[in-house]
Simulated assay, not measured.
Amino acid sequence: MPPRPCPCGSGLPYGECCGRLHSGETAAVTAEQLMRSRYSAFVVGDPAYLLATWHPRTRPRALELDPAIRWTGLEILATGAGGLLAAEGTVEFVARYVHGGVGGEQHEVSRFVRDGGAWRYLDAA
């Protein structure tokens, strides 16, 4: 049986892509990689990863994911900065989902900053 593909759409197996970030084996090196891994965390139901990668200034105390939402796809529309040496960056994306049999999408421009050398989600611009 072939390994399951990563939900982020990279084309890599989950265990070689976002799974490595979710397990703590490695950290995101770009804002886009963090954004993709956070989307994948929603797909696989990993609120601990989402909280751990949220900037402390804007992070909620707790996060409950709705098990009735099935995330169905991610499309990256644009990125701004957020590279290997950058201190901040943005990622514009559309995440598609199904909830209660009805399809929808979340269109967002997420802002990311480095905090202690690691990329963190700050907020949506």
Results as ranks from 00 to 15, higher is better:
residue 1 M to S: 14
residue 2 P to F: 13
residue 2 P to N: 13
residue 3 P to K: 12
residue 3 P to F: 07
residue 4 R to L: 11
residue 4 R to A: 12
residue 5 P to R: 11
residue 8 C to V: 08
residue 11 G to W: 03
residue 13 P to H: 01
residue 13 P to K: 07
residue 13 P to D: 04
residue 14 Y to S: 08
residue 15 G to W: 00
residue 15 G to K: 09
residue 16 E to H: 12
residue 17 C to E: 02
residue 17 C to I: 01
residue 17 C to T: 03
residue 17 C to G: 05
residue 18 C to F: 06
residue 19 G to W: 04
residue 19 G to D: 03
residue 20 R to W: 05
residue 20 R to Q: 15
residue 21 L to I: 06
residue 21 L to F: 11
residue 23 S to W: 10
residue 23 S to K: 14
residue 26 T to C: 08
residue 27 A to L: 01
residue 28 A to G: 06
residue 30 T to Q: 05
residue 31 A to R: 03
residue 31 A to L: 04
residue 33 Q to R: 13
residue 36 R to Q: 03
residue 37 S to Y: 02
residue 39 Y to C: 03
residue 40 S to Y: 01
residue 40 S to I: 04
residue 40 S to M: 02
residue 40 S to F: 02
residue 42 F to E: 05
residue 44 V to Y: 08
residue 45 G to D: 09
residue 48 A to Y: 07
residue 49 Y to L: 02
residue 53 T to K: 00
residue 53 T to V: 06
residue 53 T to S: 12
residue 55 H to Q: 12
residue 56 P to H: 08
residue 56 P to G: 10
residue 57 R to Q: 14
residue 59 R to V: 08
residue 60 P to N: 09
residue 62 A to L: 08
residue 62 A to D: 13
residue 63 L to D: 01
residue 69 I to D: 09
residue 71 W to K: 10
residue 72 T to D: 13
residue 73 G to Y: 12
residue 77 L to K: 13
residue 78 A to Y: 01
residue 83 G to T: 04
residue 84 L to R: 15
residue 84 L to Q: 11
residue 84 L to T: 14
residue 85 L to W: 11
residue 85 L to T: 12
residue 86 A to V: 06
residue 86 A to I: 02
residue 86 A to G: 11
residue 87 A to W: 07
residue 88 E to R: 14
residue 88 E to T: 09
residue 89 G to I: 02
residue 94 V to I: 15
residue 95 A to V: 00
residue 96 R to S: 14
residue 98 V to I: 14
residue 99 H to S: 13
residue 99 H to M: 13
residue 99 H to T: 11
residue 100 G to Y: 09
residue 100 G to E: 14
residue 101 G to Y: 11
residue 103 G to P: 13
residue 104 G to V: 10
residue 105 E to F: 00
residue 109 V to G: 04
residue 111 R to K: 03
residue 111 R to C: 09
residue 114 R to L: 06
residue 114 R to I: 00
residue 117 G to P: 02
residue 117 G to F: 04
residue 120 R to Q: 05
residue 121 Y to T: 05
residue 124 A to R: 10
residue 125 A to G: 09
